[in-house]
């Protein structure tokens, strides 16, 4: 489960999940929901793989979201599904999505960057919680 939450001039991404893999996938979906008005309009047409190194989960989450933002900015790719495997040394992921089609994708916000401000990846009695503020 994920949601956007308010921050004065920017936006917050928040997700809760039973495990870390799902948490990272939910945060990715949350980022897409900040960029596109209707994330359901993104079709999983093209598959790509991604690998990142990192031992600290909070920094790894920032790097994961940064990489997705970069693929949107540089290659104009939006993603619909995320299979993520987080380990102690990094993550591997399979992404499925498609390039932006202005006829079908109404873009909502220009996410300038993923910030470290009040960054959270924590284990709770119910599972895992993550929060990230993105710069708009």
């Amino acid at each position: 489960m994920h949601e956007l939450f308010e921050h004065t001039a920017d936006l917050g991404l928040r997700a809760v999940a039973p495990d870390v893999n799902t948490l990272f996938a939910e945060m990715a979906a949350c980022l897409m929901s900040a960029i596109v008005e209707d994330p359901a309009s993104i079709q999983p047409l093209h598959e790509s793989a991604l690998q990142l190194a990192g031992t600290e989960k909070d920094y790894l989450l920032v790097d994961w979201l940064k990489e997705l933002l970069l693929r949107f900015e540089e290659d104009h790719m939006l993603f619909a599904t995320f299979d993520v495997q987080v380990s102690d040394t990094g993550l591997t992921a399979t992404l499925r999505g498609e390039p932006v089609d202005p006829q079908r994708h109404a873009l909502a916000h220009e996410v300038k960057a993923i910030t470290y401000h009040e960054l959270k990846v924590i284990q709770t009695p119910q599972g895992w919680l993550a929060e990230v503020i993105v710069d708009i």
Partner: peptide
């Protein structure tokens, strides 16, 4: 001034 990230705006 308003709430930013790290530094205030």
């Amino acid at each position: 001034i308003h709430w930013g990230y790290g530094f205030c705006i």
